[in-house]
Design a protein around this nucleic acid. Structure first.
Lengths: 146, 146
DNA sequence: GCTCATAGTTAGGTAGCCTAACAGTTCGGC
DNA sequence: GCCGAACTGTTAGGCTACCTAACTATGAGC
């Protein structure tokens, strides 16, 4: 509680947020080890599921460079999960969209993950679940701020 | 609310937890891009800061295999941040501990990250911060369950 | 039509993870 | 005591995902 009253409390919260986040990252990693699609692939498919996307936007959303995104997308294409077509409004650009197969693979994988997470959540009591549910939008807000 | 009352609600919560977590992962990644120590290195130093640790425990805590941990630890050793000494009670084992330099590097980096996160948290209002603070232990519990 | 910016791909390199194989240490059974 | 099984780390070799730099092709301004 010296010069800047917010600092001390915020730093304490920041510290425990960082620690928690670190563990959550390990948790999330542990959930994609067993199967078919990696977390990054899931993210890519999730984006493309909504609407056809440009490579550059996918890269930006994933926080990686365009060439890295191209690489991953080509793999997804080879796996038959997405298609790449030139953007009709700008032939420099490429639109990535889900194939029929990609959509069902994405849905299946999402269902599987949800079930796995739900199984974890089942260990919490109602209060904890309510607390968690309330905080998710706040964390989302934070991520968007950054 | 059919056969299994928990399922539906849990799955919904699971879905939004997964999405939030994904964004949080990107957030956390964006916070270690600019500097000296990676998140993994920070984690390793954090563990060693409390007490000397065996390689196998570090690997387990990081969720990686022992050889991968060895590799990272050797790099930290070469950077002068940790020392490796044989465990006096079991000469097969190796104890990893922070050097003077490692401790101050760890403290500096932690401080920097805390400040960066605190700056994000400053954008939230008091209610949101309270909500977040309440949820952190719950997420911690989940990570431990897994 | 020339120039400059933009969208992706290709090429080459690095870091971090993995499994498999190895070396040294401990411990239990005989 | 001593031999084999179990355990702790390290070494070796390979894979994947990321990066930067350089290139191709298209679009936009003058």
């Amino acid at each position: 509680m010296s010069a800047s009253p917010i600092d001390s409390d915020l730093l304490v919260l920041a510290q425990s947020f960082r620690t928690t986040l670190r563990h959550a990252v390990y948790l999330s990693r542990s959930m994609d080890g067993d199967g078919e699609l990696t977390t990054m692939q899931m993210s890519t498919l999730s984006m493309a599921a909504e609407e056809p996307l440009r490579v550059s936007r996918i890269a930006a959303n994933l926080g990686i460079r365009v060439p890295s995104a191209t690489e991953q997308i080509i793999k997804l294409e080879q796996a038959g999960l997405v298609s790449r077509t030139p953007d009709p409004t700008d032939s420099r650009a490429v639109l990535v969209q889900l194939t029929e197969m990609g959509r069902s693979a994405w849905e299946d994988a999402g269902r599987l993950r949800n079930e796995r997470v739900a199984a974890l959540l089942a260990h919490l009591d109602d209060d904890d679940r309510a607390t968690l549910a309330a905080a998710l939008p706040v964390i989302g807000k934070l991520s968007r701020t950054a």
